[in-house]
């Protein structure tokens, strides 16, 4: 973990209430896809944890949805600097012993899968992504995932774009050795029930600190009590207790 100052390079709306922000700064502590950053905002006591969409040597990109005062404030910033903690959470582990991977993202659970998709493609896996949204106006990421060489399927709950239904309604024909998923908890549970291989799940919980100190986001697993922020947010299928 590192605390440092990042400069806002851009902040654009990419779907209904969804924004993409690119930040410049020291990214050396970001070590895995699926990690998150924790952003300090003026006037708000707690930091705002937001998952990393993509990163390189000097920039980090986040995609976030406006859901409260923090993200509302963030969405209005087009320039300036932010105090950010980076390198938080365990992130996804890219395994070497499988050939094909399925990515299942729901809404703002899609972003942490993007950098992961890059890494999975880079190690030569066949990757399919099923990205689920409520409606056409919420959809983002289709071109970006496709451009990586990932077969990308979009689902919408109301059927206004792509396949009508949830991500689990689109996976019966797909062949995969492992899966990676992130999204709202009911979706994760549905994925758990609809899949037969091993997989990695990224969870969300209301956090205090975001770095393991306060025990605000604990959960029970078959491997003992874990902190979503530090021991997670990624848990493997075999350890999850619903």
């Amino acid at each position: 973990m590192k605390q440092s100052v990042f400069k806002i390079l851009s902040n654009e709306k990419i779907a209904d209430s969804v924004y993409r922000m690119v930040l410049k700064g020291d990214t050396s502590h970001i070590t895995a896809s699926g990690q998150f950053i924790n952003i300090k905002l003026d006037g708000l006591f707690l930091r705002r944890p937001i998952s990393v969409y993509d990163y390189d040597e000097s920039t980090v990109t986040i995609i976030y949805k406006v859901v409260g005062v923090g993200t509302e404030q963030l969405s209005g910033m087009s320039e300036g600097e932010l105090d950010i903690l980076t390198g938080l959470g365990n992130g996804y582990t890219v395994s070497n012993d499988t050939k094909s991977a399925l990515l299942l993202g729901g809404g703002v659970g899609v972003p942490p899968l993007y950098n992961l998709a890059k890494k999975l493609v880079a190690v030569g896996k066949t990757v399919t992504a099923v990205l689920g949204f409520n409606s056409k106006c919420d959809v983002f990421g289709e071109d970006e995932f496709s451009d990586l060489g990932v077969k990308t399927i979009i689902t919408t709950a109301d059927g206004s774009y792509g396949i009508k239904g949830f991500v689990t309604d689109a996976i019966s024909e797909i062949e995969y050795d492992e899966f990676y998923t992130c999204g709202p908890e009911p979706m994760l549970k549905a994925v758990y029930d609809a899949t037969s291989t091993s997989g990695q799940f990224s969870f969300e919980e209301r956090m205090g600190c975001g770095f393991g100190a306060c025990m605000g986001c604990s959960c029970k697993t078959k491997y003992g009590n874990k902190r979503i922020c530090k021991d997670g947010p990624v848990l493997v299928k075999e350890e999850i207790i619903w």
């Binding site: 006591f45 025990m215 605000g216 604990s218 029970k220």
Partner: peptide, 23 residues
């Protein structure tokens, strides 16, 4: 002790509420 169910954290003006429950 595992402590209390989540959510355990709420934000306030210049502060926060926690209900960890001695985990």
């Amino acid at each position: 002790r595992f402590g209390n169910p989540t959510p355990r954290i709420a934000e306030c003006e210049a502060g926060m509420i926690n209900s960890v429950g001695l985990q």
